[in-house]
């Protein structure tokens, strides 16, 4: 999952080129989906465990990464169980789990700026009319502002709860959208003020 989880460190995974990490992540996910065999999944899970060990990340870090997704994983498991078999439910859930853990491993070991540079390195093969630096900035902004919008949502909900309106979708969404737009305006302005181009 693309969270803001970077943990500083000096492992080979931290030092690896971000572009390579992204390519590897892509190949890893593709492989898990194309080769639908339990052995492949087992290899994948072992690889991830090794990755976390190499990066010096303990079970705690792994748990933090996956915690927000537990709910979704549980729903998928239940749905598969209902529609298919127990065996398939386990397989599908574990595979998604593996993908999330792999993506989290990349974000744990890659700073947002390196991540953007990695994307830029990949983008550098794109034609020249693609605004590469802008795309990179946009990606870091998403990274930076997701926690902030989440915090704003909590704030708005609290304020509306105090007014007894916390079950009213409109009362939640309107202030949130207004604030987000206003924030976006101010951020755009700050970016203008801080950079020369």
């Amino acid at each position: 999952m693309l969270t803001d989880l970077y943990i500083s460190g000096d492992s080979p995974l931290h030092r690896a080129r971000p572009a390579w990490k992204l390519v590897l992540l892509f190949l890893f996910c593709t492989l898990l989906f194309v080769v639908t065999h339990p052995v492949m999944l087992a290899i994948g899970l072992v690889t991830i465990a090794l990755g976390y060990a190499v990066a010096g990340l303990g079970p705690r870090a792994a748990y933090t990464a996956i915690r927000p997704a537990f709910f979704v994983l549980a729903i998928i498991f239940a749905a598969q169980l209902w529609l298919e078999t127990l065996w398939l439910a386990i397989y599908v859930t574990l595979r998604l789990f593996a993908l999330l853990m792999a993506a989290a491993l990349v974000t744990y070991t890659t700073r947002a700026s390196e991540f953007t540079e990695g994307l830029l390195a990949l983008l550098s093969r794109a034609p020249s009319w693609v605004p590469k630096a802008k795309i990179a900035l946009a990606i870091s902004l998403v990274w930076r502002f997701i926690p902030m919008i989440r915090a704003q949502f909590d704030e708005v909900r609290e304020a509306q709860r105090a007014r007894g309106l916390d079950r009213n979708m409109l009362a939640l969404v309107v202030p949130l959208v207004v604030r987000t737009l206003k924030t976006a305006d101010e951020v755009a302005e700050a970016i203008t003020a801080r950079s020369l181009d």
Partner: peptide
Amino acid sequence: FMFQNPDNQIVYPMVEEDLAFGLKS
């Protein structure tokens, strides 16, 4: 220029990266 709300002025997720931002251009 210092804006009233630093939340909107800080662009990058990490302190060091954010400081580097103004120097990029």
